[in-house]
Every structure is written in C-alpha cells, then in structure tokens.
Simulated scan of single mutants.
Amino acid sequence: MIGILVFPDFQVLDAAGPISVFEIAGRFAGQAAPAIRVVAENAGLVRSSSGVEMLARGLRPASALTTLIVVGGEGVRTAARSATTIAFVRAAERRGVRVASVCSGAYILAEAGLLDGRRATTHWGRTRHFLSAYPKVKLEADQIFVRDGNIWTSAGITAGIDLALAMVAEDFGDEIAQKTARQLVLYHRRSGGQSQFSSLLELKTPNGRFGGLLSWAREHLDEKLSVDQLAERAGMSARHFARAFTAETGTTPSKAIERLRVEVARARVQASGEAIERVAEATGFRDPERMRRAFIRAFGQPPQALRRAARAG
C-alpha cells in the first residue's frame, strides 16, 4: 500500500502528482499494483493551501504500507512540530517502509531524524533555511530528486512526479514507467541527477544579487570563468564571493557555471548536427569527455543520447 501523508495547508500537486503516477502505473501493472491511501493526523477532509480538500484516513499503524510519501506546502513547519506525525514517519522507516518527501516535505523527514547523515534535496527556495535548520543533512540543493538507501527526497512540486516515476521503474520496470510517462504526456522521464538549477537561474535573472553576473557568464562560456575571475567581476574577494554566492543560490560558483555550460551545450546538441567536439569547445568544456561526464551528472545521459532522442522526437 502507498500512503500519501498530507496536513492542513498542504500543496495539492505534491499529493496529486504522485497519486496520478501510481494510479496510471497501476493500470499497466494490473493486479500487482498496490492500493493508494491518503493519510493525515486527523482523519477526514484536509484542506490544501488552494482550498481544495482531500479525504484522508488517520495515522493508524499499517503493516501493509510499503511506501510513504510526505508532501510539502505552506503548513509543513506546523506539521513538522506534530509529535504524532513525526512518530508515524519514524515508525514507518523502522518497519522498512520506503519513505519519500516532495518539496518541503523534507522538513518532516529531517525533523524525524531520517535525513541525518544522508543525501537529500528540497525546493531550491528553501535551501538557506533548511541548511541552517538541519546541518547534519547532506543537502544537494540543485537536484530534481535524491535517493539515499530507502529514503527519497525531491525538489519542488512537479519533481514529485519524477520521483514517483522512478519508484514505478524500480517496482515494475522501465517499460511501465515509460508508458506511464507517455500517458501523462511527459516529453521524457527526468533522472534524479537532472538539476533544478536552470529554473533558479531564470528566477535570479535579472533581479537577483548575482543575476547580472550569471547573465554575463552565459555570454562568455568560452572563457575559463574561474572563481577568481567571477569574484573580480562581482567586485569581491574570491573567498567572500564564494560564500555569498553559495548562500544565495544554494550551489557553488563552479557548479553554477557547469550548469550554464551544460544547458547551453544541450540546446546546441539537440538543435543541430554540430560536432560534439565543437560544442564542447564553444561552451568552455574544452574536452568532449569532460562535457560527457557533465551531461551524465545533469541529465543521466551522454550528449549523443540526447541528440538521438531529440531527433526521434
């Protein structure tokens, strides 16, 4: 049985996205598909932040529970202070249940101690507060979703769909996951390694503190773009710049530049027959092998695979 844990002022898509994934996958999987239940501390109608309500069962111990997905939303910090909710999540993990969070639902997992010493992610907008509140968590702030053992965490809202599809692939195989993605009219199934940082760049430009710098860097990807060079451009010492940049964006300058390079490189790879070596040179990777490794980190596939997929599409 799959449990979707909600609370007052939850984000409705955090729940509805995974529910839809498991529902559709269940049709393809047939009798092997598990039941889906919405659960909450108080049984009955639970009002989301949008005003839409979901009918939930109470948090009774359920030995049949195999997966527990904790949603996020405006009410997550109140829910994270609930002893009943935290005890339920801890008990599920102790029983060997696969436990996951969508978006800020990671706060509940962290409060329960499930993320201590583990790799995890959450919505990029929560990065600074999350890092200060839970320093024991190995936060990977720019990932779509992260799996560390039996604990899964995902980024903002729609990333819960990606996480659920990955679970479907694990449970029923890639074929059913791909059929489910097509039924949902998704262009492709994003890997956990794909970054949410491109969205961060869009939101930080042009109003963010480093928006202008990132826009400039995007136009000069063929240059080295070292931390020293970026710091000089920003009018800061290298040490202060690195700290300030990481605090604001949730990622290091070097990772941000790699994301810029890989996003521009991907567009060129998918849109033309330009030689991979030329793309690597023009986007600052220099070495095609270095670009290939960056693509695998970001998209889970090498450049040639993305080009073939684009042509097939």
Rank of each mutant, 00 (worst) to 15 (best):
R218Q: 13
R98M: 15
S48N: 01
G113H: 11
E219Y: 08
A280R: 00
I276N: 00
V137M: 09
A280T: 05
D171P: 02
I161S: 13
G44F: 04
Q304T: 14
G73T: 05
A110P: 07
R126W: 01
G26W: 13
A91N: 10
Y134R: 01
T205H: 06
Y107K: 09
A100K: 14
E263C: 14
G284P: 04
V262N: 03
A133D: 01
N150L: 10
L214M: 10
Q143F: 07
V99C: 11
K224S: 15
L165A: 10
A29K: 05
A310Q: 06
I176L: 04
Q196I: 15
G211R: 11
F285V: 13
R268K: 03
G192F: 05
L131R: 14
I144M: 14
G75N: 06
R119W: 09
M54S: 00
A242W: 05
E258L: 12
V146F: 11
E223D: 13
A231M: 05
L260F: 01
A267H: 02
G208C: 00
F10H: 07
A56T: 01
H220G: 15
L109N: 13
D222F: 09
L186H: 11
R311V: 08
S20H: 15
L59R: 01
S49A: 00
R128Y: 03
V38G: 11
G125L: 14
G26S: 12
T67G: 04
D148M: 01
M167S: 00
V97K: 07
I276P: 00
G73V: 09
K255V: 02
F172M: 13
A169N: 13
V39M: 05
G30F: 13
E41Y: 05
G113N: 07
L201S: 02
Q301P: 09
G30D: 06
A56N: 01
L55P: 00
T158S: 15
G156S: 14
A238P: 06
Q301H: 15
R261C: 03
P61H: 00
R118T: 10
A40G: 04
E258K: 15
D174E: 14
R60L: 06
V102M: 10
R311D: 02
R190I: 09
C103L: 10
G117R: 12
E248Q: 05
A267G: 11
A56C: 02
T246C: 06
G44Y: 08
A166E: 12
A234P: 05
F88I: 08
A275M: 08
V146S: 11
E274H: 00
L203N: 03
I4H: 13
R293L: 13
R119S: 11
L131F: 07
M54A: 01
Q229W: 11
D14P: 12
T252I: 12
P8N: 02
R286K: 08
F295P: 14
T180C: 09
E232S: 10
Q196M: 15
L5H: 04
E111N: 11
L131Q: 07
L45D: 11
D142R: 10
E170Y: 06
G313H: 09
W152C: 09
R209V: 08
A155R: 12
S20F: 07
R278T: 14
R278W: 03
E263K: 08
V99M: 11
L213F: 01
W124H: 01
R293N: 13
S237L: 06
T252Q: 14
E23Q: 12
K224T: 15
W152S: 12
I4F: 08
E93D: 15
L201T: 04
S101V: 02
